[in-house]
Each structure stands twice: as C-alpha cells, then as structure tokens.
Nucleic acid binder design. Structure first.
Lengths: 343, 343
DNA sequence: GTTTTTTCTTTACGCGCGTAAATTTGTGAT
DNA sequence: ATCACAAATTTACGCGCGTAAAGAAAAAAC
C-alpha cells in the first residue's frame, strides 16, 4: 500500500500506466477490458485503493446502480425481514440498495418517492402504504422510474407486482382448521389499510362457500399501524359481548393475532387445540414473533426467500427490457402452512 | 403549472428572470437571498417544479446534506423505532437521512461504512454491532466522517456517544422487584454481542451488593441475533434442571424475556405477581412487543424521543464545530419504569 | 440627493467522470 | 509475414452545479 494519495481517476490512470477512459471502462464493467489490463488495474487498486467519485459517476449516467427499496412500515418485522433479504440480493448483484420506510405516513411516502426520483435509480421495489397512498403520486413516480410493486398491489401501477397468493394463504388455514376441528370465523379490521386484507376476506368467503359452510366475518374498529393493540381490544370486545360466532378464529394477519392472543390471555382463556382450551386461533404471515406468542401461533407463512428472489428476477428483466414491460406482470407466491400450538 | 420542461438550473434561472448563481445561493440557503427574490424563485418553482441535480450539487461540495443512520439489526423493532425517530428529526432539520442495517454481519457493517464514506455525509449516527464489529474499520471510518455513536458504546471511537444509562435501567427494575416481592436473579446470554448487556450485569451486581443482597447470574448459551429463541431454550433448561436460584427473574433485555415467557408458557408455568403465579419476570428496553406478551412485560423503558433528540442535538453541535469535538461527549439517558403484569 | 451597504449579475473556471470519434497498438489466424 | 479484428489510447466535449471576482443595481442610511 503506497502512501501516495490518488485524488481522481486521472491520477489513478497515470499510476497504473493506463489511460483514463480504460479505467472508466473497467469500473463500469471489469469484464469489458482485456484480462491483462484488468490484472494491471487490480494490482494498482491494491496499492492505492482508489474509488471513483460516486457523484461524478452518477451525474453522467442516465441510470445509476442505485436500487430503491420502499416499505410502508419498517417497525413491522415482516417488512424488516423482506427488506433485509432483498437488500442482500441487490448487493450480491452489484447494485446499491437504499432502504426507505414511509412509517405509515402518506406525506413521507410522497417525499421518499420524490427524493428517490432524483437518484435516477436503475429500479425500485415499492411496497406502498395501500389505501393511504396518494395514488396520483405513486402513478407519477412509476411513470418516471422502473418500479416493481411488492406485497401490496395497486392495480395498473408499476411494471410488475410480486406478492403473496392470498387465496393460497386462506385456503390452507381454513382447510386445516376445518379438517382438524371446526370451521373458523374470520377476524379482521373493519377498514384495513393494506389491500391484502380485503383479498383475504374474499378468499375466506369463497373457500367457505365452496365447502358449503356459512361464513362469519368479525370486524373490529381501529386505525393506523398498531395492529396488535387493535387485535387485543377486539378480543376483549367480542369475548366480553359473546359475539364470537365460533370458537375457531382465523385472524387476517399475525399482528392482529398477537394482540388477540394477548387479549385471550388477559381474560384467562386458554387457546390451543388440546382439551381445556376455549379457543383455537390461526392466522397468516408467519411474523417473526409468531413463534413466541403464547401459545405459539399456527399460521400460513410467507416464503420470504421466494418472494425476494422473484422480486430480483423481475427487476433484472425489467432493467434489461429498458424499464418497461409490454404487459404488467403479476406473480403471486403461495403460502406454506406452519402448524404450532394455537390451533 | 407550465408544460415547459426545465432541464437545469440555467434554464430555471432564465425562466424566473434571475441569474444562475442567485438560484444556486437560494437552494443552498433560502434565507441568503432578499425576500423579494425568494418570492420570485418560489413562484417560479411552483410553475416549473425544478429540482437541482443532486449529484452535481454534491460533487462540488466538501460536505453534503446527507446523514447516515447505521443500526446493527433492523429486524429488531427497537432499532426500527429509534431509527424512525432519528430519521424524522433529520428530515425536519433539512437533512437527507439514509438508513442502513448491518443485519448482524461484520462484513456488511464494513461495506456500509465504506459506501457511506463515499457519500461525504455531514454526519453519521452509528449504532455498531458491538463485539462483532471490526474495531479497526470503525476507527478508520470515525476519523474520516463526523460520527455520533449511539446505543452501543465503543470506547474512544466517534466524537460522541448517546446511549442509555444502564445503571438506571437495572436500578429501577431491581428496586421495584425487591420492594414488591423478592430480589431477582439476572438472566442473560453468556456471550452477548452488545456491550450494554455487560453493563447491565455489572449494574445488577452493584445494585444487589449495595442492598446487601446476594446476586445470582444465570447465563445461557447462544450466538447471533435470535434472542427470543435463546431465551426460550434457556427457560426450558433452567426450569427443567431446577437451576433457577429464585422465583424472580430479571432478564437482560426484552427479547430474551419474550422468549423466556414463551418457554414458561410452554411448561405450563404461570408468570405474574398474583397468587397462583410460579414466577415473576421483568426486563429492560420496552420493546414494542413487550406490551403484548403473555403476561404483558414489566420493563425499564428507553426514552426513545429523548435519545433521538439528544442524538440530533449532538450532531448539530458537532457539525457546527467542524466535525470534531475537543473532548468526546458521552450522554446517558435514564430509563422509565413500566409496570405491567409479569412482575 | 448623495453615500454606504447589501444584493444581484456577469463572467469564468473547476469538479470528476461519461462517452464519442479517430487513431494506434496488440492479438490470433491464415 | 500478412491480414483482420479486437482492444487500448488520444483527444475532446459535455454533464449540472459550486464558487470566486468584479462590476452593476437596488436598498438603506445619512
């Protein structure tokens, strides 16, 4: 390692005995220069550890190596986990992932998208807020930036969507509950922010209808992203008033279920499928904490790796296609049923 | 809104009837131009919605408006929460926060710091991995970039540290447990990655000694960031072998406690302070989920807002001081005791 | 109305790199 | 050795903005 400081590509080219355009070529694609040249550059790189100025690089490129990852709420471990996997894939593929969370706020989501546009990203993975999103702002963004929506679909926006097959989620849990006990009622928020919630309700109604069973949807009030508290309060309400139509409860998502289980515990109700249990509770998502609820939660799990892989794959082909697809691609990943103690 | 497209500052200057350097001044500090001029610019801004090219801006500035926020593990809601608050403060202060998670990996932490250096940030909030960090890499980074460490202290690195007063955390929980029942044993991982864990153990030993009580430290094996599972397994171990020295357990942190409570539940043990309860369990952090454990968790809470505010305040004065402090500042924020059902 | 001070304009250069065109050098096959 | 072709070099321009210097214009002070 030489003590001589390299200030720019010009100096580095001189130090390695090559021309600046050749160095520039190397950094844009190391494979685009002859093997011997590459070796000389890499040898010089070890001695001087030069790195091209990222701002100057991006200024003169129509599209950068930046990839935006936008999630609606990072304090939700589901999004933290999916973001983590996508991020790693991006790094491995030579991109520079930049992670954003809208923290449940429409205004912040808008600001993020504006700022992201200025970064001229090669592509963006966007999990929108859903009902709270400013559709106009998202549409405008998707027109300017190659975008893959994930988790939460907004019809017609973005070049592709990668999400979960909500029917598969609900079908598996309902079938399991019916097979091993009684048909469930469906427990959810009355005005969910996330479109998956609506899809799950519809799936529940359809599955029950196909099985010739009478559906029961139990809806609780509540706004915002404090799902656990909404689930807990909801549990107290329905248990207090005895308005629960069955003893088998299928929650729309794990965070609601976590709250629901807490509510049951507070009321001294035992949940599970053994004897002495007053209720069975199952859910969807396989939230990282659902393994540690009391009792542990039976749930339909996202296949995080599959979703992330499909996201990456979609973005790659989108970039290769120049940022636009002929027709909007939609990929739905099925669930994997996880049997635990709660049902 | 005019349909005419503005491509750069030159064109925008022409459109607003001013010179480019004046526009440049405005964007660097809107207050540095006369009020009337500012109005003219802002009027033009509404018509053409021009935004200066971020790459060209940063290229010619020695320090940017970027602020890095680096946390060790974003899937831990504690970090998600603290990052969220700091991020909002940064935005409100006119900075551009960029969030990174090392996801528990030393290599990734190193790569993040390298990439961050290239962004010439005005300042960085760094919560290092702790024991797993490459101290050399962190030291090198802190020398090049104005850095405020938070959460996890590494002696001598960074210009300042903002964290929690672990003694205050442990003092409050121990005192409460002693006052309302029996002195606790201390439950923790044998080889914790985070230095706060060691400080909490020492605080426990000190508080117990000061009260003239015999301390009992219970350590469980386990590596990585799956604290809940480690706590759960630990609970089964100590309960199976009856090696728990007391019926009052103080966990080092909430994630361990969440696992511990799950273990207790699985063994049919009732936790709480009422009659019929076999154990009392308390902990530290006020993890966002500790409200929803069964039973809900008594814990010493971080004062998230205070920590975030102090972080911002420190970074501001650090930036004003030109990126260096005479002496390294250390701020420790005390805890707030939250009484719930588990103890 | 004149002077002083602040603000703005004009002009000009530099930042570090992308990239195109034309030329030269190097490589491998005939 | 000759040719064809790939790869590297030289030269040159542009990206969009920061920023400095000098002079002009506007605002404030007298």
């Amino acid at each position: 390692m030489s003590d001589q400081k390299i200030r720019n590509m010009e100096e580095f080219a001189a130090a390695s005995g090559l021309s600046r355009p050749t160095i520039s070529k190397y950094f844009n694609d190391p494979g685009s220069v002859r093997a011997k040249t590459r070796e000389r550059i890499e040898a010089a790189l070890e001695r001087y550890e030069f790195r091209p100025n990222i701002f100057a690089m991006n200024q003169n490129r129509s599209l950068t190596k930046n990839v935006g990852i936008v999630v609606p709420y990072l304090a939700d471990p589901f999004f933290a986990e999916i973001a983590r996997i996508i991020q790693r894939r991006c790094i491995d593929a030579g991109f520079t992932p930049i992670l954003y969370s809208a923290h449940g706020e429409q205004k912040l989501e808008g600001e993020i998208l504006e700022g992201l546009t200025a970064l001229k990203p090669a592509g963006v993975f966007l999990a929108p807020l859903g009902r709270l999103s400013d559709r106009g702002a998202i549409d405008r963004f998707c027109r300017n930036v190659p975008t893959v929506l994930f988790d939460s679909n907004i019809e017609g926006m973005g070049e592709a969507f990668v999400g979960s097959d909500n029917f598969s989620f609900v079908k598996q849990t309902v079938d399991y509950l019916c097979r091993t006990g009684a048909p469930p009622c469906f427990f959810e928020m009355r005005t969910p922010a996330n479109p998956n919630a609506n899809k799950r309700r519809h799936a529940y109604l359809k599955v029950m209808a196909e099985a010739g069973l009478e559906p029961h949807v139990v809806q609780v009030e509540g706004e915002g992203w404090g799902f656990e508290e909404i689930g807990r309060r909801g549990a107290h309400e329905v248990l207090e008033r005895h308005t629960l139509p069955t003893n088998t409860v299928l929650c729309s998502n794990d965070r609601l279920a976590i709250g629901f289980l807490a509510g049951c515990y507070e009321r001294g109700l035992r949940v599970g499928r053994g004897e002495g249990c007053a209720l069975r509770v199952a859910s969807h998502d396989d939230h990282p904490f659902s393994r540690f609820t009391c009792p542990s939660l039976t749930t339909a799990a996202h296949q995080y790796e599959l979703v992330a892989d499909k996201c990456m794959e979609t973005l790659f082909s989108l970039i290769e296609a120049g940022g636009r697809f002929e027709t909007r691609e939609e990929t739905l990943i099925p669930a994997r049923l996880i049997l635990r103690a709660s049902a």
